[in-house]
Design a protein around this nucleic acid. Structure first.
Length: 289
DNA sequence: TTTTTGATCCGGAAGC
DNA sequence: TGCTTCCGGATCAAA
């Protein structure tokens, strides 16, 4: 599951490959075409397939940036506009000379959008579960949820924003895990890194936000930021379906203390799991209070 | 009005 | 082996 560090890795690799290139052709898989034709919002959101293709065709890629877990491609054709992409559960980009160069079959057979670039190479978007998203926007304001996202966690304003949100009426009674996984509170922290940060801080995931002191909240925020940075350094985490643009897995999963563990790496207790905000939360009943 | 729940996008892993 | 069930980021409509 790609979270912020994985998306950052992808963006860093796509950027040098894509910037300045022109999109000469756009290919959308038959699977997506059929789903779209039957009225579903499969990957390409709020736009018909043919319109999506004609908007991208002939555009030049000006920049590739990450915002939270989203990838923003700034494109230029007449004026500038955005292609906003979310990797969802299993989305992956490959920069290859041919689709046959995608090594693993499970990715190769689920390629759904291909951008053919002016350097002769392809930027191919593969998505096994099709939870990924592509949106063509005139500007960011055309998709309001983007504007509600918390600041980037590495920005100076992010800590104050986090404290203000976590202590607001809407969030103060909620389990802390649900709070830190909310993109309006902190950007880019999903189940994996929330689990790891709470384990490191020895905080029970179900503890109400207001039952954590200001000092501990600050420490928790700093722990999340540190883990995100550590993961970026490690090339992200590969749980099942994350691959970088060269098809490689990350290494961060080898440093986990809790996520996906049956036994606590600290004390050896059997871990427990519970549903918080509709998501599975693993924790150590001995270490996390 | 606000918050919560459920459906939606799916294939694959796991359990029987 | 084949069937059923469960899982998940994020959004959006419905309750």
């Amino acid at each position: 599951m790609p979270e912020l560090p994985e998306v950052e890795g992808v963006v860093r690799q796509i950027r040098p490959a894509a910037i300045g290139k022109k999109i000469e052709e756009v290919f959308v898989s038959d699977t997506i075409r059929v789903s779209k034709t039957s009225g579903k919002e499969a990957i390409i959101k709020r736009m018909e397939t043919d319109m999506f293709i004609s908007r991208l065709m002939g555009a030049q890629i000006i920049s590739v940036e990450r915002r939270s877990k989203y990838i923003y491609f700034t494109l230029k054709k007449d004026g500038e506009f955005l292609l906003v992409n979310h990797l969802g559960m299993s989305g992956a980009w490959f920069y290859v000379d041919s689709l046959l160069s995608i090594g693993e079959e499970k990715f190769r057979k689920h390629v759904h959008v291909v951008l053919s670039l002016s350097d002769g190479n392809l930027l191919a978007f593969s998505d096994i579960r099709r939870f990924g998203e592509m949106r063509v926007l005139k500007e960011e304001t055309d998709f309001p949820p983007l504007l509600l996202m918390a600041p980037e966690p590495f920005e100076e304003s992010a800590l104050a924003h986090f404290l203000q949100m976590a202590e607001s009426p809407k969030y103060q009674n909620k389990p802390i895990k649900e709070v830190i996984m909310d993109g309006q509170v902190i950007s880019g922290c999903g189940n994996i890194y929330a689990t790891e940060a709470l384990f490191k801080m020895k905080i029970h995931p179900n503890r109400a936000a207001k039952r954590i002191s200001r000092t501990r909240k600050v420490e928790l925020f700093q722990t999340i930021v540190a883990i995100l940075l550590e993961s970026i350094e490690a090339g992200g985490s590969t749980i099942s379906d994350y691959r970088n643009v060269n098809g490689e897995s990350g290494n961060m999963q080898n440093r986990f203390g809790m996520y996906g563990k049956k036994q606590c790496m600290e004390c050896g207790s059997m871990t427990k799991s519970l549903q918080i905000g509709g998501r599975t939360s693993v924790y150590c009943p001995t270490c996390q209070k």
